[in-house]
Nucleic acid binder design. Structure first.
Lengths: 398, 398
DNA sequence: GCTATTTGTAGCGCGGTCGAACAAATTAGG
DNA sequence: CCTAATTTGTTCGACCGCGCTACAAATAGC
């Protein structure tokens, strides 16, 4: 306890914080010139040159001789995020397991999917994850010349403790108190990080999607339940234990119907995908089919239900506006279909329940990233770790 | 636009971030030894010595020869936050204006209060503020030898845009779109900052009160309305326009009664101080009187109402728990009386509506700081600015 | 008084960044 | 096609915050 490092204050002594800033910008822009880096960071040309060459030596970025050549003057060198530095996204769901390899430049390189006729337990899921990732890497070795895997990001549809890597509860998977990070990292030659699915979806929409560049974002994803993700000041809202942003379980009504956690009158209890399916005469259909049916086969019964759900959604969003004053609200999953059903009505209800000053500048979007959103979010989790401490990942290769 | 500084990335080139860290710790602990600073920051003795002497030269801290002397070894020098570096808190309310001088070590040095028989407009309020502050400084000059005033923090009971310094709307004061920062700083030889009353109360409780040291805090203050403040990750939740944490306007019920902003079923519409006063046969009494009457003269009518309000409060808090996963919830103003009325019932309802994982480690407190809370919060606003950039305040004196 | 312990102090070195001077690569214009 | 203007890359020297080491100083325990 004598040589312990500080944790309370923000900063200590910087071993080049600017290296992280530059790496982060290169990752964000995917390709950028050195002079643009100078403008964005305020650093001098000499400093940027040194930092970029350091990152290039580390293998995280590549330099090309020509950037854009439309201006007078010597053209600036282009800098690109490496395409052979990979993160693996791991997505266990009720009826499948999907792993994807995502490059540092945002490209999805390769993927594998295994279908499950029936749900499986967490321990067997870990077996399958290891097998799938090893298979994925085998495939890559056949095709690609060289690559490095930095880590794996596991997408958990439930409450996760990211710090310890424990899945607290994932009701749909029927997993409870499962130390997945520990189990996985013991069997894989890479770092393992875990995150909540909605939070990762939010992260992805901020990085490459509908909320790109926004730093105050509320994200709602509807599938079997309703998950939420919040970013404030550019940072994820984590809370004390790391379980924050359970936006589906916010009570907005005094009606009696419960959500799957037994709480009455919540968003999740009032806005239910299966109720929509039922009124449309559907069962277990994809989001696309649901949206088409909802928008094109409007019956009085379906319209009634959709409007009722839309109103509840708008009231909930109004609450989040009053609470967070976000710049961007992103509706994903079947919530985007609901929103498309009657945007005007949504905004009317929203306007009625939110304070005027907090509605200023608010933008409501539907999720842009489809099936790749979660994979990008999961890879982002790994890459953010890389960006924060590039030196930590020096010795990793494959 | 060529020599513009960066604003998007977090850091650029540090002009001693550690100076801020050390100054912040000295302010937080009020008195601390150099060796403790070493342990807390991880910096070496030589570095701490240099930083402290820099701060001492600046006049923000003073060094004493003896710290604690209970251990073996050479005693470490004590470092204290200066008692002659001041911030002025300015608190305009419906029926009074109060200004207080708060020292960098947290002590309230002096105060002045002016009563208003009837509400006044913002322009006349500015006149009174200038007069009151000048009078306050005159008083101080008579008594004290020497002091420096860094800035004034204005406590606004309404929506504020801290960045531009505009009061967007303060319904109780009947002020709307008033650029108070601009008007005040034109007439005062000091920086002027403004903030929302509930957010400042929250800040104060974190600095010296019930939520001391906690970095995930939800604060609710009940007076005529219900205001909220949120700190996450040790930082204030600001939102896009700076209007976040309007927690009183969160809808939790589908009943029809409106709050003062015309939104039905909100916390503020359901938990009303004046309803409590009415059922107790009181009118315009102080918080203390209200609490005494509420707790000691329990009738069936008052119990019914209090329980109804308590339930609404608990549901709202449960929502905030699900949203924020806070470590600490602080109830202030008449909400603390309501909480004391039946804590068990509150926690029962809370438990029913919040997710189990998010309740782990949660602490619910009543506000500790009485009338000085807001003044401390306002001064803290100024001192945080000082701590972030100590060099900015070098040339200021009085 | 002597020792062990802890802290203050002074000097040196390292690393990250800036700044200035010069070279290089492009566009614009004749 | 050649020149001027412009913008960037490159190199080198300097500064500064910070760590490290050695030594002095101040305490408790014996």
């Amino acid at each position: 306890m004598s040589k312990n490092r500080v944790d309370t204050p923000e900063l200590r002594t910087s071993s080049s914080a600017n290296l992280s800033v530059v790496l982060g910008l290169i990752h964000e822009y995917r390709t950028i010139t050195r002079s643009e880096l100078c403008q964005l960071t305020g650093l001098t040309r000499s400093t940027v040159a040194k930092l970029v060459s350091t990152l290039s030596d580390m293998g995280f970025v590549t330099e090309s001789r020509s950037g854009q050549i439309d201006r007078v003057g010597r053209p600036s060198h282009g800098v690109e995020a490496a395409d052979d530095v990979l993160a693996i996204s791991v997505h266990p769901e009720v009826d499948y397991l999907e792993v994807k390899a995502v490059a540092f430049n945002g490209q999805i390189v390769h993927s594998r999917k295994k279908l499950y006729p029936q749900p499986i337990g967490p321990d067997q899921a870990v077996d399958d994850m290891v097998e799938a990732i090893e298979g994925l890497l085998q495939d890559l070795k056949k095709h690609s010349l060289k690559f490095r895997v930095l880590g794996a990001g596991v997408i958990v549809p439930g409450q996760t403790d990211a710090a310890t890597g424990v899945v607290r509860q994932a009701p749909h998977l029927q997993w409870y108190e499962f130390p997945i990070k520990q189990k996985l990292s013991a069997r894989l030659p890479m770092r393992v990080l875990i995150g909540n699915d909605a939070s990762l979806g939010c992260k992805a929409e901020i990085t490459y999607g509908a909320a790109k560049g926004s730093s105050e974002v509320v994200y709602l994803h509807g599938s079997s339940g309703i998950g939420g993700g919040v970013y404030m000041g550019g940072k994820e809202l984590k809370g004390f234990g790391g379980y924050a942003s359970e936006l589906g379980h916010v009570r907005i009504s005094s009606v009696a119907s419960d959500d799957y956690s037994g709480i009455p009158g919540t968003l999740e209890a009032l806005v239910r995908r299966e109720d929509l399916e039922k009124v449309l005469g559907l069962s277990q259909v994809s989001d696309d089919v649901l949206e088409t049916e909802l928008l094109e086969n409007r019956t009085s019964a379906s319209t009634n239900l959709a409007k009722k759900q839309l109103e509840a959604l708008a009231v909930a969003v109004a609450n989040f506006v009053n609470i967070f004053n976000p710049e961007t609200v992103v509706l994903a999953g079947f919530l985007s279909s609901l929103y498309r059903f009657d945007q005007k009505y949504f905004h009317m209800v929203l306007k009625k329940h939110a304070l005027p000053a907090l509605l200023e500048g608010l933008q409501v979007f539907v999720g842009e990233l489809g099936s790749n959103a979660l994979a990008i979010g999961a890879s982002e989790m790994v890459f953010e770790d890389l960006i924060a401490e590039p030196t930590k990942y020096l010795k990793l290769g494959a």
